[in-house]
Nucleic acid binder design. Sequence first.
DNA 1: ACCTGAACACCGTTCAAGT
DNA 2: ACCTGAACACCGTTCAAGT
Lengths: 227, 227
Amino acid sequence: MTARSEPVSRRERPAKPALTRSGIIATAVRVMRAEGLQRVTMRRLAKELDTGPASLYVYVANTTELHGAILDELLGEVDLAAAGAGGDWREGIEAVLASYTHLLVQLPSLAQSALVARPSGTNYLNLLDALLALLKQGGVPDDQAAWGVDTLLQVATASAAEHAGEDDTDGTEWKAVAAAVENASADQLPHVTALGSELLSGSPETRRKWTTRMLLNGILHTPRDTS
Amino acid sequence: MTARSEPVSRRERPAKPALTRSGIIATAVRVMRAEGLQRVTMRRLAKELDTGPASLYVYVANTTELHGAILDELLGEVDLAAAGAGGDWREGIEAVLASYTHLLVQLPSLAQSALVARPSGTNYLNLLDALLALLKQGGVPDDQAAWGVDTLLQVATASAAEHAGEDDTDGTEWKAVAAAVENASADQLPHVTALGSELLSGSPETRRKWTTRMLLNGILHTPRDTS
DNA sequence: ACCTGAACACCGTTCAAGT
DNA sequence: ACCTGAACACCGTTCAAGT
């Protein structure tokens, strides 16, 4: 009876699978990879899963929660190998953050949502632990590490989020900033004018590396109590 | 003829004003203050201005551009007085960033949009100039100031953006993070467990102040060329 | 318990047509 | 040039009804 009751479904209809939370999230990740987070909507997912939007609410509280789940799923791909390797701690942090950034730069809208919906899943906690291990290895006092790691991740996330909303292949928006800086009058904006192109210089990679070194220096040398 | 041709419009209908860009933006700011940025939609604004949504597209390119214009308008309220006062440069930066943060914390969804749509209006450039003046006063080398000021503003903006999407008066989401940290197993997350509540300690104000000091130390002591 | 159709209350943007 | 109605192609979420 089992075999006989599947009429034409050899290949053409993949026998509509039962709805599960993980199935929904897996579909969400696939749609996001193919078309971006803005296409990951309840209605679109429902269509993809061959059901109505209302059905998804059995497994997912709302759209925000869904986006959070996607993020945690993807955070599993961050390369934490450098954390256990026993090399230079600064280079270790640089490597972990580079991996994190490269992941999110390809998915900027997810980075944007990560800034608002603080992740708290397993993969996020593993990332946090890896960074704290490296800070400890570098002799950073615990209280400074605890607050500093937050800024480290926040800056990395915000940098990635900046690339969201850029269909903008020609960098129209970047040009607007550049033009504004260059057209600045020396009277009203003396310092912006003086610095000029220096403000916009450097590749994203170069700036990220300097910023990481800068943050580590700050974290290492700034005690928590004002003394 | 001028006076006579206004029939009943003494008070009841405020004589539908001509559509202008600044009128649209003013209305947008008002709606945002009253109901939040998520209510500032083309359709809602059109209704407010007693016209159809299509009419707005004569003055505003799209929703993103509109949000950018709102932000620049509001940035005029940031208090830059500390920049010219000639006091301690660190305290000056702290004061300017505090003013900027307090503005955006009340409008977190605007902060979120600021992260993606880099502002380039007059008020933003004035803010940039004020911070650069203070960094110069502190003897920060030009190239370090140029890259550092970006991180300074990015961190302030991201901190404010984190409060977006919180109808969340009871802090449900914050509790999720706290629970995750506390339930962390010592085996798998030794450093997160060890730091524990330290990770979540401190008021936003205290953390912001430490973070600002930390960034200034980093910017001041990190040369651009790796040597 | 899970799943669904249908409905409610919205969106952004474009376009042909009017003034 | 500016303004508009109407349309196109979507949204999130809820709820009563079914299985």
